[in-house]
Design a protein around this nucleic acid. Structure first.
Length: 584
RNA sequence: GCGGUCGUAGUCUAGCCUGGUCUAGGACGUCAGCCUGCCACGCUGAGGACCCGGGUUCAAAUCCCGGCGACCGCACCA
């Protein structure tokens, strides 16, 4: 018999202990949607908080929250309406649906790159001319139609107001760029993140939390001046070793990662932008802190035809999973100015920023100033109108006409040199306007939850221990009376409520034997169990038990809050939480 | 979407082929009580399931059809 793989073990535990499970089970479940339980929700939040700590707080970047549903034009501009779809074709007889491009590939021998480039009409024509029939019943196929993988809806009661559920949180940032830039006091580089739900109507989602129709995306859009692409923080990561599979290596047919420092990867041109490399290095460290060893991570460069429509260079950060092998946990794309430019064109709003610069360009500007005293005398009541017309006219044209012909005609009014004064002003341009470029690291937080659980899942004999990194544990400490009598429960409740008011995620449990309770808390990854025993009643000390080694130390109750705080910040190790304790 | 396998308490499973004896059995977990002096102790008790819908039949967990879902393979994953 096949032994269950880690996915099976982890999802069984996740369901049983309240991390996550398929949503809507009472109605049979819907694939592509999951619910997070009490432990999963806290774990997920702690993972996202770690992202906030590592990518936002430390770098001084911002987080925003914008709508999940956005008007159709946003996604027309972003290119999603155009690109986020697959050609489908229906059999007129048996009503089965197929991927039109795949049918073509299979039955007409057209390569996938070729098929991908074809328009809907071309696919339809090709299918007809080659006589492609339904592979199931041999019936005639209807005209191919696109299946949009965005969720479409209507906004308000008017059916014309089409809206879409966002397939990424990024557009919410681009759309608000002008205000965000202003609020960042017009400084570049600037990074804005958004952690929120995104929707993709996947054709066939599988794999539990790995591929969902509704999921939480962590998008960070980092804006910078394309003429100043250097990353001043590079020094912090330049010696970080990345396991990289560059496109050129893949094209030679190899998927063997090369181990290379960030610095070298930039020098050799594998990674084109410093900021891209910088965030990849942070992403690697982030995953290490989530419990994934370096050799279980790699970055694989996307080939030109695999990349999203907005991407000029892209790497997927992959983590090795027991069941699915190398699995994407984050994407790192150089989006250039694609998105801001597209929104600029669609909306007509200028998305450019202005930057002052060292080089100064001088230009002489000519303007025409109406002489109101003369105009008033000559035109009387029409004077204001004439003045307005003059200031709207091109100064160059007016000046030229006055020089060559001695007058200029404006809607029937004859303008003479005496009516105007030609003013020449030197204009100094101190900068330039440009559309910022964007580097985007993007994580799927549901996948990260799963990854943390899979890497934390360990067995000790028949017992399961979730070795979740201590700062991510959904229950941080458990307070347990050794036995449930003789005043021990009362004392333990006291310790518990102290820890609660000190801000710890603490649980109290007195049911069953002490060993059973230790086992229960091991299984949900609680790093420390505090046991109140008879000695506690005499000298106000308790034992602390380490989840991973089962070792114990003894400490005074009064020192717990401070010691534990240091422990959870990784400033103190378990053995330094007290004096070694051996059971009597 | 396609093909294959499958769907019984919180979890794992017996029963299904050969319809009735199933008021659906067990183990673990959960809850209550007793017990309990450091790693799932023991005892007593409680609660908890045939995926949904149709059909065949005197009778369906069991046979048939459809749906939904899960897993594996193919495809997809911007």
């Amino acid at each position: 018999m096949r032994s269950p793989d880690k996915y099976e073990l982890v999802s069984e535990l996740a369901r049983r202990r309240g991390f996550f499970w398929p949503a809507c089970e009472i109605y049979g479940g819907v694939s592509g949607f999951i619910a997070f339980g009490q432990l999963g929700t806290v774990l997920k939040r702690k993972i996202e908080d770690k992202f906030r700590e590592r990518f936002l707080r430390r770098l001084g970047l911002y987080e925003i929250e914008s709508p999940i549903i956005l008007p159709g034009r946003v996604f027309e501009a972003s290119g999603h309406v155009e690109n986020f779809k697959e050609p489908m074709v229906e059999c007129t007889r048996c009503k089965r649906k197929f991927r039109a491009d795949h049918l073509l590939q299979e039955s007409a021998g057209i390569s996938s790159t070729e098929a991908e480039k074809m328009t809907l009409e071309e696919i339809g024509e090709a299918m007809e001319s080659r006589g492609v029939k339904c592979p199931e019943c041999g019936g005639d196929l209807a005209e191919p139609r696109y299946f949009l993988t965005m969720f479409q809806t209507t906004i308000g009661p008017y059916a014309e107001a089409v809206g879409y559920g966002r397939p990424e949180a990024a557009q919410g940032i681009f759309v608000e760029f002008r205000r965000l830039y202003e609020q960042a006091r017009e400084r570049l580089p600037m990074g804005v993140a958004q952690i929120g739900h995104a929707l993709r109507n996947e054709i066939s989602p599988r794999q539990g939390p790995i591929r969902l129709r509704e999921f939480t995306i962590i998008d960070l859009e980092f804006f910078f001046d394309p003429e100043k692409p250097g990353c001043p923080l590079l020094g912090e990561v330049e010696n970080e070793v990345l396991r990289l599979i560059p496109a050129e290596v893949r094209l030679k047919g190899s998927e063997e990662p090369i181990e290379i420092t960030v610095k070298e990867a930039l020098e050799k041109g594998y990674i084109k932008m410093e900021w891209l490399a910088f965030f990849m290095a942070l992403a690697k460290r982030f995953l290490v802190e989530l419990g994934v060893p370096e050799d279980k991570q790699r970055f694989i460069e996307k080939l030109a035809w695999e990349r999203a429509h907005y991407s000029a260079q892209g790497f997927d950060q992959e983590v090795y999973l027991d069941r699915w092998g190398w699995t994407e946990v984050s994407g790192h794309n150089y989006r250039t100015d694609f998105d801001l430019k597209s929104h600029m064109e669609e909306s007509g709003v200028d998305m450019r920023v202005f930057k002052e610069e060292g080089r100064v360009v001088e230009r002489v500007e000519t303007s025409v100033k109406p002489k109101m005293d003369v105009i008033g005398r000559d035109f009387r009541g029409d004077a204001p109108k004439v003045a307005r017309l003059i200031s709207k006219t091109s100064p160059e044209e007016l000046e030229k006409s006055l020089e060559e012909r001695g007058f200029y005609t404006l809607e029937g009014y004859k303008i003479l040199p005496s009516h105007v004064e030609i003013v020449r002003k030197k204009r100094v341009e101190r900068g330039r306007r440009f559309v910022p470029h964007v580097i985007e690291p993007s994580f799927g937080s549901d996948r990260l939850v799963y990854v943390v659980l899979e890497y934390a899942y360990t067995k000790k004999g028949s017992r399961t221990i979730l070795k979740i990194p201590r700062d991510l544990a959904p229950i941080e400490v458990a307070v347990l009376p050794l036995v449930s009598r003789d005043g021990l429960p009362e004392k333990a409740r006291e310790v518990h409520s102290t820890l609660i008011s000190e801000g710890f995620l603490a649980e109290y449990d007195e049911s069953g034997s002490i060993g059973r309770r230790y086992a229960r808390f091991d299984e949900v990854g609680t790093p420390i169990c505090i046991t109140v025993d008879y000695q506690t009643l005499e000298d106000e000390t308790v034992t602390l038990r380490d989840r991973d080694t089962w070792e114990q130390v003894r400490t005074e109750i009064g020192r717990l809050p401070q010691l534990l705080r240091e422990y959870f910040r990784w400033e103190r190790e378990f053995k330094d939480l007290g004096t070694p304790y051996r059971k009597p």
